[in-house]
Amino acid sequence: MTFDELPPFIEYHFGPENLQRICQQGMHILFERARGIPGLVVPMLKKILAESKPDGPIDPFTLDDILQRWELT
C-alpha cells in the first residue's frame, strides 16, 4: 500500500476515533516499520492500541517504542 492509503485503511479496520489518535509523524513511523504491508499494519496497530492509554492521542515516541519492542519478540 502507499502512504496515502494508510489513513483510510486504519479507519476501515480500527474506526475513525483510532485514526484521529495517530498524528502524521506516528503514521510515518507505522508505515515505515510495516514497510507498507497491510498484513503487518494490522497486528502492529493492534499492539500499539493495546499498550497505549485508551483515550487521547498516541505520542509518536511511544508508538515508536512499542514497535521497537514488538519487533524484538
Rank of each mutant, 00 (worst) to 15 (best):
P8Y: 06
P8L: 06
F9H: 05
F9W: 02
F9K: 13
I10E: 01
E11K: 05
E11F: 02
Y12I: 13
Y12R: 15
Y12C: 10
Y12P: 08
H13G: 01
H13Q: 03
H13V: 06
F14Y: 04
F14M: 03
G15S: 14
G15L: 13
P16S: 15
P16H: 14
P16E: 14
E17W: 14
E17C: 11
N18L: 09
N18E: 09
N18C: 08
N18M: 12
N18W: 08
N18I: 08
L19M: 12
L19H: 08
L19T: 06
R21K: 10
I22R: 01
I22E: 00
I22T: 04
I22P: 01
I22D: 00
C23I: 10
C23M: 10
Q24L: 11
Q24T: 14
Q24F: 13
Q24P: 06
Q25K: 15
Q25E: 15
G26R: 10
G26W: 11
G26P: 09
H28S: 14
H28D: 13
I29D: 12
I29C: 07
I29P: 07
L30S: 11
L30Y: 14
L30K: 12
F31Y: 08
F31P: 03
E32L: 12
E32W: 10
E32S: 14
R33D: 09
R33W: 12
R33G: 05
R33I: 12
R33C: 09
A34H: 02
A34Q: 00
A34W: 01
A34G: 00
R35D: 07
R35I: 07
R35S: 11
I37W: 05
I37K: 07
I37Q: 09
I37E: 09
I37G: 06
I37A: 09
P38F: 06
P38Q: 09
P38L: 06
G39R: 07
G39L: 02
G39P: 04
G39Y: 07
G39D: 07
L40W: 04
L40V: 07
L40P: 03
V41E: 00
V41K: 00
V41G: 00
V41C: 00
V41I: 05
V42P: 03
V42R: 08
P43L: 04
P43M: 02
P43N: 05
P43Y: 02
P43S: 04
M44D: 10
L45T: 00
L45F: 01
L45H: 03
K46W: 05
K46A: 00
K46D: 03
K47Q: 08
K47I: 07
K47A: 10
K47P: 01
I48A: 02
I48T: 03
L49W: 00
L49H: 00
L49M: 02
A50C: 01
A50K: 06
E51S: 04
S52A: 10
S52Q: 08
K53R: 13
K53N: 10
K53H: 12
P54W: 00
D55S: 07
D55T: 15
D55L: 04
G56K: 05
G56V: 08
I58M: 04
D59I: 09
P60H: 12
F61M: 15
F61L: 15
T62W: 15
T62R: 15
T62H: 15
